[in-house]
Design a binder for these strands. Structure first.
Lengths: 160, 160
DNA sequence: TTCGGCAATGTTACATCATAACAGCGGGGT
DNA sequence: ACCCCGCTGTTATGATGTAACATTGCCGAA
């Protein structure tokens, strides 16, 4: 399946279901790997998934603190690091914020379309773009590892 | 001219000359536009150009303060904002750091190869990659404006 | 069973990156 | 002379991220 199109889906889908799907997949993935998706980490994942907009670490913290009084910045950053390590969320570098991964499981660098108006951010998986990135690196004799691709602009809805 | 290949050039070129070229071009570009490349701004540009590694705003500040006692964070950020606005430097989002632009003049989003070992960062201008980005956005009915492309890994020298 | 190791979390403090808000200064036009 | 405006100065604070050490709880080895 290609990316569902978060920004587009945002208008139409049942988001409760969307979150539940993501959490369920996350549990399966972690179970299959022996990675420990603890209640704390799952709660953070759930918070990140509350919307299809990238969420700042301190926003996560505020939300987490409502149910988890001892939460502090390291609490959140550790959970975010774990989730990124397992490929369950991505960091959006140009916003210093975090977003649920729609292709969880297969570790990958995401490609993102970020609407500057509504904030909705869609993760895309574009093979040609992937190839172009690899070719560009290869041409420069550069061994690429992590790839950051973030396009800001206006989503279809906001442009209309 | 294609990007000179900063990371590669780093090993071979006369960097004093490289800085001078960049400053000279910057003066010409600003003069041609009526943009005010003040001594302060030029000094900041020079500091950013001291290496081909992205430099943090507070590193710029430390260096600037040696000759300019009143320098404070806003001093530096204003100069950096000006220089970015004129297309003379880029911000490397994944490092929160700034880098001289090798294609100054033509406003553009850069594409970068960042060596995680030596820090040398090469700006590339790859038409195919550009096209792939535009196509990917178009396919999602997304009106792209600003593009962030940063590939981290090992430069040819460090991989060897 | 007890102990030691280890992963997760708690806790305090701090480092790093960035901006708001207002003041002062100086040149150019009227 | 006066005002406007862009640049810089200055103080304070906001936003993002991490170091370092303490505590807890589980699990396996002796």
């Amino acid at each position: 399946m290609a990316a569902r199109g978060a920004a587009q889906a945002h208008q139409t889908h049942n988001h409760r279901e969307c979150i539940e799907d993501a959490l369920k997949r996350a549990r399966e993935i972690c179970a299959g790997r022996g990675a420990q998706l603890t209640p704390l980490r799952e709660k953070v994942l759930q918070i990140v998934w509350r919307s299809h907009k990238p969420v700042g670490a301190y926003d996560v913290l505020d939300e987490l603190a409502r149910s988890h009084k001892s939460a502090r910045p390291p609490t959140v950053y550790r959970a975010l690091d774990f989730l990124m390590g397992e490929g369950l969320i991505h960091k959006i570098e140009s916003l210093n914020a975090y977003l649920g991964c729609v292709e969880a499981g297969a570790p990958h660098s995401g490609q993102f379309l970020i609407c500057r108006q509504c904030g909705a951010t869609e993760e895309i998986v574009d093979a040609k773009l992937e190839t172009a990135l690899d070719q560009a690196a290869k041409q420069a004799h550069f061994a690429g590892e992590r790839k950051v691709v973030e396009i800001s602009g206006l989503c279809a809805r906001c442009a209309a």
